[in-house]
Amino acid sequence: DTAEQLTPVLLDGPREESLQLVSELKDSSCSCAVDVSTVWWEAAGCRELRVVTASESTVSLWEPLAPDCWGKVYTWHLREIPVIQIISLPDTCNLVCVALGELEIGEIRLLLYSSETDSFKHSLVKTGNIKAVVGLKDRRLVSSSRAMQEQQVEMVSLSETGGSKDRQTLMPPEETVTAFAEVEGMREALVGTTAGNSVVVWNLKTGQLLRKMHVGYSYPASICHRAYSDSGLLFVVLSHPLAKESESCGSPAFRVVAFNPVATSPVIRGCIRPCRVSGAYLEGDVWDTAGAAVLTSGAVAVWDLLQGRCAAVLPPGPAGHWALARWATGGAGLLAGHRDGTVHLYRY
């Protein structure tokens, strides 16, 4: 429904199995696209899904104007520190969250529209040596940062107007947290991966660190994307950006790993390797049980993680290699982007 709302007409173009090209937008002023995302936006009583694009110094908000026609609503200019990531805030309206920094995140800012002053503005949420950050439902933001030898893990609840309502400190693990992921359907549970290749679990209400479970040594530098609790087991979707492509067995872009959180030794009980596609994982995104990744071959591949099968492949086109693959919020489609600022929206 949301995809229909965005652009009702299909373009002629590549139809890669279960992916259908719906529309394209091109930021002609963008020299190097950094990230792309979507956000719910409500204006004049109308709520619609808008696209957000980011370059190093700008973040732009796009609205659907007509079939296959996107218009730039506003561009925030952030010239002091480069933009490196758009942080998705699920189910949140009229707020865009971005991470700025050089090699690592130094600032997290909210970009928003103020009806009081009838103007677009941005506000600072957090500064520091931020290693990982995730946006959660109900306008919550969790981040890990390092100051001297100390690691701080903190959840910030945001107000509708972009302020910080509440801050909760979470117990840090000894190892540096490299990524966070929400546990589907469990509002107070959060998982993370660590530099020591472990999965950790927190209670967000109490701040307790509940478990630390080692992933094993087969694939280092695991990054968590999503987790699900089912039948007493915790299933965690991991990617391995540092995994080397091997000719003999390929490189798994994602793995779904199951843990028994209450077992004394919560050993990995099973792991699903999605079907192999040429190229190793560069970066990607998971929504519900669908994983999408940009591969070193320049293609974007989409997997059904429950069945472990590859659902679609977008080969690199005339515009060159794909650089970005993101699910639209609410599963409204897949956004695939090139570095030149071209973004294709696909229905999945």
């Binding site: 117990m171 469990m186 107070e188 549970a189 679990v201 209670n203 109490t206 307790q208 660190l209 509940l210 478990r211 609790s229 039948s231 007493g232 087991l233 915790l234 028994n260 959180p261 209450v262 077992a263 004394t264 030794s265 009980r269 099973g270």
Partner: peptide
């Protein structure tokens, strides 16, 4: 895997671990 392979399973693992973990 059989249940014995997995060890004891708790459907309320989150509540159980929260009751046991240090505050």
């Amino acid at each position: 895997c059989s249940e014995s392979d997995l060890g004891p399973i708790s459907l309320n693992w989150f509540e159980e671990l929260s009751a046991e973990a240090p505050p």
